[in-house]
Design a protein around this nucleic acid. Structure first.
Lengths: 146, 146
DNA sequence: ATAATTGCAAACAATTTGCATTCAG
DNA sequence: CTGAATGCAAATTGTTTGCAATTAT
């Protein structure tokens, strides 16, 4: 599902079109992995230099509404967009800023729990968990010892 | 720990002071629960009308650095600040925007897992989990049936 | 005195809006 | 033709910076 054709028809049902701009934005997000609107814009402009950043924002919103892309607030600043496909969880260290990706399989139990207890269907794709990574914990421990 | 006095002395060790503005910001965050810098500002200005929003930002940064408050990106827009104290997890429905709070105890297993497998110490306070709440799932199911 | 803190204005970054133009059905 | 989509400029929102004036030690 959600291949080229079905996307076209989903849009068509809503009286919308799959324009070159929207396709380029989707491609850019696919290729870049995690990218801010700014970065997507630069990428798209590599191919079609006249595309305006406003269009990028509008396309990202639309694609997100259609469930094709997703945004996450990793650090501060601008959010990053990525395709819904590759499911993973971010481990963001708030000490050094490193971001690791691990499988969503980790969350399976939690998912089940939330559904059973609260009727809440967790969207496990692209979750960002913040904490302290091994390195920083070691560094802290060393600090402590002094 | 981290009562009035120890805060004062923590600051003092760093050659800083507990100013009225900072106290008001901390109080506001305490009272408001989850608030954007803007909201904190309005609250503080209710008591001390001349306090500038710049000061709010600076105080929030400082208080966060001291581990007294914490910010989370709930919806889009501005982040919300809240006191570190009451540990809980947010269940944010991306359909209707409702935000529920549940105990962090839910995450105990996940915490253990992350630490054992990745050496990652999850900060479970104030995690936001996005997904679909019971109501919206029911609504969707009803839609489906038609 | 001296160093921290504040308020203010201005800069800056990220995002949104209004509107005239273009484009596809 | 008509409505959807775009580009552009301007407006808005959220946040940061530089600096002079104020305040506590």
């Amino acid at each position: 599902m959600s291949d080229q054709g079905s996307l076209r028809s989903t849009l068509h049902q809503r009286g919308m079109r799959m324009t070159p701009q929207r396709q380029l934005v989707l491609d850019a997000v696919r290729e870049l992995g995690h990218a801010t609107p700014e970065q997507v814009c630069r990428r798209v402009q590599g191919t079609a230099s006249t595309v305006n950043i406003t269009t990028i924002y509008r396309a990202l919103d639309l694609l997100e509404e259609l469930g094709l892309v997703r945004h996450t607030h990793l650090g501060h600043g601008a959010p990053t967009y990525s395709v819904e496909e590759h499911e993973h969880v971010h481990l963001a260290c708030h000490r050094c800023g490193t971001i690791d990706e691990v499988s969503t399989e980790l969350l399976d139990d939690l998912c089940r729990d939330l559904l059973a207890r609260f009727g809440f269907a967790l969207d496990a794709t692209h979750l960002a968990l913040s904490g302290t990574c091994r390195n920083c914990r070691n560094a802290d421990a060393a600090e402590e010892r002094r």
